[in-house]
Nucleic acid binder design. Structure first.
Length: 321
DNA sequence: CTCCAGGGATGAT
DNA sequence: ATCATCCATGGA
């Protein structure tokens, strides 16, 4: 097995893979094992160098050394060509953004395969990252093509065609719950090319978002994730509960009646042309940065044990913690 | 506009 | 061990 090395400055592999934009990489032996499209890959960062080992899928043996493009393929996937200094320099200068910017140095928005990204974000609805990772693994192990890097076995993400041939019951066995129906319906649209994901690359943001939102299981949040992580639309600003909390706390403090559309309109103008990057930095910072002692104690928790009737009150209080 | 299904991990008790 | 909480979409 061949080892490839490439330069990767201003890049933090572990933070990038752990920031909730992609769900299938496993940390192993100081590196990460996963797939890039159909290629099994093991990658490890040592300073400004990425060390890479690749394998093949069992179904297509092709160890073709003459046309080896491993380095370019990996550099493209991790978007090492994004001008990160320029991008983070374009973020607004405000306290929340500045804290996230310095915390997330080296975090990149990667270029994911479109179908895989769309499918996983359909599965992500109402799920937390740990659980989405399990869904990804189950779908891969059950429906994906097997391959290996050295002796390590792993599976590529199944094609839309393959999932279109499965059943809702089979998908439910992968812990998808009600998402199974949406994933299956969307897989069929994609497999039939009624939804031509590659062709949609040519559409302007507005039209692309409209097409994505017309797919079963895709609303504004999922569409924005797919636009950002698979279509390189770096303005797209997905708003989930974490980001909503950040926006309300940091940018609309002590204001009630801030609607979802107010927030997305604000985000579009405040964070600018690389808003998606800004969003990812704010998201990762909010989720993983150590909190000050005392500020993380949930004041209302002891009170809401039993009464369902109180859940309404709780909901109003939550964003404040 | 509001309400709520859905289900497995997670953290509090 | 139980129990509340986390969560996006789509339909009532």
């Amino acid at each position: 097995m061949k080892l490839t090395e490439i330069d990767a400055s201003n890049f933090d592999l572990a933070m990038t893979l752990g920031s909730g934009q992609v769900f299938h990489w496993d940390g192993i032996d100081g590196g990460f094992l996963g797939t890039i499209g159909d290629r099994p890959v093991w990658v490890e960062q040592q300073g400004d160098i990425l060390k890479i080992r690749t394998g093949d899928l069992d179904c297509l043996k092709q160890s073709n050394l003459e046309t080896d493009d491993t380095g370019r393929m990996v550099a493209n996937y991790f978007a090492l060509d994004h001008p990160l200094a320029e991008i983070s320099g374009s973020f607004p200068d405000d306290p929340a953004m500045n804290a996230a910017r310095s915390y997330c140095r080296g975090l990149r928005i990667i270029r994911q395969p479109k179908w895989e990204c769309l499918a996983m974000f359909i599965c992500s609805s109402m799920k937390q990252v740990a659980h989405i990772r399990q869904i990804s693994k189950k779908l891969r192990d059950r429906f994906g093509e097997a391959g290996k890097v050295d002796a390590k076995i792993l599976h590529a993400f199944p094609s839309a065609t393959r999932l279109a041939q499965s059943s809702e019951a089979e998908l439910r066995e992968c812990a998808l719950g009600y998402r199974a129906k949406n994933l299956l319906a969307t897989a069929r649209l994609v497999a039939s090319k009624e939804a031509d994901l590659e062709k949609w690359s040519a559409l302007p943001d507005i039209d692309l978002r409209a097409r994505l939102c017309a797919l079963p299981g895709v609303g504004a949040k999922v569409a924005n994730c797919v636009m950002l992580f698979a279509y390189e639309r770096l303005r797209s600003f997905p708003i989930d509960v974490w980001i909503e909390r950040v926006l309300r706390e940091k940018y609309f403090p002590r204001k009630r009646k801030v609607t979802a559309s107010t927030l997305s309109a604000f985000a579009a103008v405040h964070f600018g042309e690389h808003g998606g990057y800004a969003q990812q930095y704010l998201f990762h910072h909010a989720r993983t940065a150590p909190r000050l002692v005392g500020s993380r104690k949930s004041a209302g928790k002891g009170l809401n044990r039993k009464a369902k009737a109180r859940s309404k009150i709780d909901r109003v209080k939550r964003p404040g913690l």
